[in-house]
Design a protein around this nucleic acid. Structure first.
Length: 445
RNA sequence: GUGGGUAUAGCUCAAUUGGUUAGAGCGCUGGAUUGUGAUUCCAGAGGUUGGGGGUUCAAUUCCCCUUACUCACCCCA
């Protein structure tokens, strides 16, 4: 037996979530779930641990290096998932025949990356993905945009911009400039435009793709295009003329813009931005990035795009699809900075004071009557001083407190105190406490 | 993974050129004659100064290692 105390600590990049951060976190997930479901997306989950060969398949060196990987007790080479897309690809390859296409799924869960930490970047973080598999229809591209729009609105944002582009336009123009073979590095450089400026982007393109100044200028023409969505399309069309792929991309962009206008989304929230590229190399069509007007520096809070062949590593069956991922942790950071999160430590609305231990059953009955009507209620566990119980209630952030001491009980009543305005009213104590419930429901909105 | 910065109570910070029992505010726990919180007053708990090693009569202070945080790069949500 050792008395040695083990120092409590968490691994680098791994965090505990206290109630005040977990409550808004869960709320955000609930909002996302309800939006996804409203479009017919179904939930799935996959294991945290997969065979390493499954995860490595996509095999950029970068993801391999970042993966948590080990040999398990059965000598299997295993790794922890570093995103939800690779497991989805395996999932679709494995179950595609029973799922039926199109398949629309959402998946919220933790992923792990053994990369170096930075503010807002952790080794364990949640992803919140939705994807539509098994169709090439632009209708799904449009729907993806609508889902992002609804997500942002439902979370409570009005001032945000969903930036849209199409890889076909980008790749088409690269091919026109004989840079088609270097698309990955060129687009990666282009993606940094806002961050490092046009000169450095050009320099990086020339260095990384061995491109001539003329080739680079040809690509950078894109970044000159500005204006309303209609104006951007008008400038883009002549630029893409004569190249099938690029023309197809522009046509898709036009269809997408027209559709979103039709459902009432304006340029305020949805903008064509031909310079966004996304670092990921597997996107082949429409791409999305979402920025907050009030916090652009935080980066994209919801990104995604279309890919031609999701599961090519695991099956010969082709599965085209489109999807996007909501940046949960970034959004929470943003909401905190914008003071959109109320400091609450409890998930209950109401606390019943335990005035005296003898009347505990009465308090339990009151709480039960509230819960039956959907009002979340906590009974204080000890018959401590009223002052202490109120202090606790204040700190936890309850909206209201119910006090039923000897005075009230003798008259068949109870007192309700609303914490925010300190007001206290007396209401009758009954079997169902209907008056109390109505009162609280009004107060709680 | 590469390079810079930081590390003192739960939080934000002090501690005179290295000097003796490391302080404050907030927070926390309890109390101020028996039933009212966020604004009073009093008291208390809580630190081997992130951890380990070295230099020194003496280290929170100087040096090395390690861990964590942080910024940039890389990459990305």
């Amino acid at each position: 037996m050792s008395n040695q105390i083990i120092q409590p600590r968490t691994l680098k990049g791994f965090r505990d979530y206290l109630p005040e951060s977990m409550i808004p976190r869960e709320r955000l997930m609930e909002v996302a779930r309800s939006v996804y479901r409203s479009y017919g997306f179904s939930p799935i989950d996959t294991p945290a641990l997969e065979y390493a060969e499954i995860l490595c398949g996509k095999g950029s060196d970068e993801t391999d290096k970042q993966m948590f990987r080990f040999i398990d007790h059965g000598k299997r080479d295993v790794g922890m998932r570093f995103d939800l897309t690779v497991p989805l690809a395996r999932f679709v390859a494995q179950h595609g025949n029973t799922l039926g296409m199109p398949f629309k799924r959402y998946h919220i869960g933790p992923v792990w990356r053994g990369e170096n930490t930075q503010a807002g970047r952790y080794r364990e973080f949640a992803q919140c993905d939705f994807d539509t598999i098994g169709t090439r229809s632009v209708a799904s591209d449009i729907e993806t945009g609508l889902v992002i729009f609804d997500l942002m609105k439902a979370i409570g944002f009005d001032r945000f911009k969903i930036r849209i582009n199409n890889r076909k336009v980008l790749n088409g123009l690269l091919q026109k400039n004989d840079l088609g073979d270097h698309s990955v590095v060129v687009l990666r450089a282009l993606d940094k435009l806002a961050k490092i400026g046009p000169e450095k982007v050009k320099a990086e393109m020339m260095a990384a793709a061995n491109a001539s100044a003329a080739q680079v200028e040809g690509v950078m023409q894109l970044t000159e295009i500005k204006g309303s969505n209609q104006e951007v399309l008008q400038q883009l069309e002549p630029l893409c003329q004569g190249h099938d792929l690029a023309e197809e991309g522009v046509a898709q962009l036009r269809q997408l813009v027209d559709a979103t206008v039709a459902v009432g989304i304006t340029d305020e929230n949805l903008v064509l931005d031909v310079s966004i590229a996304r670092g990921l190399d597997y996107y082949t069509g429409t791409i999305f990035e979402t920025f907050l007007d009030d916090l652009p520096g935080i980066g994209s809070v919801c990104s995604g795009g279309r890919y031609d062949n999701l599961a090519q590593l695991y099956t010969k069956q082709e599965y085209p699809g489109i999807g996007a991922s909501l940046g949960l942790d970034r959004l929470l950071t943003a909401m905190q900075q914008l003071e959109m999160i109320e400091p609450v430590k409890t998930s209950a609305d109401v606390m019943v004071v335990q005035f005296s231990a003898e009347n505990l059953n009465t308090y339990l009955q009151i709480a039960a009557s509230l819960r039956r009507q959907g009002i979340k209620t906590e009974v204080f566990p000890d018959a401590k001083k009223l002052k202490q119980q109120l202090k606790y209630a204040d700190r936890q952030g309850f909206a209201a407190v119910i006090v039923a001491g000897e005075d009230e009980l003798a008259q068949g009543k109870l007192s309700v105190k609303t914490m925010a305005d300190k007001n206290q009213v007396e209401l009758p104590l009954t079997e169902t406490n209907q008056e109390l419930c109505d009162f609280l429901k009004e107060k709680l909105g």
